[in-house]
């Protein structure tokens, strides 16, 4: 099988996966007791107004009609209107998605930078007390759920030292803008970003650190290190060169998968820090029976996972010529 055929097949698979995800979600969210008008049932003076609203939302139609309509909408690239906010879902969710991406990207960037350096150091100092302590520390971080790390950081940096703001994404009363630079590149935003990003970084640090350490160990074992050393190259240069070459492949793969997964994992961090992101919105919209928003939020997170898995596979293909297209 050629590369092109492989990629085409993978893309078809991707579409199939997305379709299955959408269908699953559609069925799932219709299983929720009640409908978008439920929470306001006591606010409608009579049942007629409520029924009118249900009809307006098309929720009185048979389920398969609703499903076909929704699929049609998605194919046209629309998410429909939020039943709760009554505005287009895309308009609602885009800024939230941006917030999540910025947060998780920062967290992963920190996690992989520190993780790789730390892992390399652990491998380098194999058998030392530093290595043993490092492994325990890294596993300890990975053993802590996001909310626990978040709570500790809040307790320490907000309650005890008062160094960082508690929640939100910025100070209040400034200009509300969608311009990326104005929105995210300013001191106030970065101050708010610090704790949630650090929380993510701590939790995600373990994978690259342990991976890097293992690669380092393998490289150290290899004979060619001795050979190169015999050629007169300093040990450090040899090691870093080879460790780097050997670790790129697994690291890129793992990083791609982690990025996808992190989009879903942001739910907890966003909740702890009141971060206006897509994960928190998903939880909120599920509780309000706001299907279109919940679907869109879930779909965005699911798509991130699927696309990043795909990227990981492609990276694998590209970086490792030995891999067959199976």
């Amino acid at each position: 099988m050629g590369l092109r055929e492989y990629v085409v097949r993978r893309i078809l698979q991707l579409v199939l996966t997305l379709w299955a995800l959408v269908t699953l979600l559609f069925v799932l969210f219709r299983m929720v007791p009640g409908d978008p008008t439920t929470r306001f049932v006591m606010e409608y003076p009579t049942d007629a107004e409520r029924q009118a609203r249900i009809e307006e939302l098309g929720l009185n139609e048979p389920l398969y009609v609703q499903y076909l309509e929704y699929m049609g909408q998605l194919l046209r690239g629309e998410f429909g209107d939020s039943t709760h906010y009554r505005e287009p879902v895309s308009q609602l969710i885009f800024p939230l998605f941006m917030n999540t991406v910025v947060l998780m990207f920062t967290a992963l960037l920190i996690a992989y930078t520190i993780g790789i350096l730390f892992g390399a150091a652990m491998g380098w100092l194999r058998g030392s007390r530093f290595e043993r302590g490092g492994i325990v520390a890294v596993l300890m971080a990975r053993s802590s759920p996001e909310f626990w790390v978040g709570i500790i950081l809040v307790w320490l940096f907000v309650f005890q030292f008062g160094l960082f703001p508690r929640s939100g994404i910025g100070g209040y009363g400034g200009e509300l803008t969608m311009n990326f630079v104005d929105r995210y590149v300013n001191f106030d935003f970065l101050r708010h970003l610090f704790l949630p990003a650090l929380t993510g970084a701590i939790v995600y640090l373990a994978t690259p650190a342990l991976l890097m350490r293992n690669t380092m160990l393998e490289v150290l074992k290899a004979d060619f290190v001795e050979m190169k050393k015999a050629e007169g190259l300093p040990e450090r240069t040899v090691l870093y060169k080879h460790a780097a070459r050997n670790s790129v492949l697994p690291l890129v793969t793992v990083a791609a998968i982690a990025t996808g997964a992190a989009m879903g994992g942001s739910v907890i961090i966003e909740t702890v820090f009141n971060w206006p992101g897509v994960g928190r919105e998903m939880v909120a919209s599920v509780s309000r029976n706001d299907y279109p928003v919940a679907m869109a939020a879930f779909l965005l997170m699911g798509t991130s996972v699927i696309v990043m898995n795909f990227v990981a596979d492609l990276a694998y293909l590209y970086l490792d010529p030995r891999v067959k297209y199976e």
């Binding site: 799932l28 969210f29 929720v32 998903m282 599920v286 699911g302």
Partner: peptide, 23 residues
């Protein structure tokens, strides 16, 4: 394996949250 692939595309925690909320 296609089913496995599909499940790989589902974000773990959000799915669990939605399902538990619903059921």
């Amino acid at each position: 394996m296609r089913i496995t692939d599909i499940v790989y595309g589902v974000p773990f925690l959000p799915f669990a949250i939605a399902l538990v909320f619903i059921l």
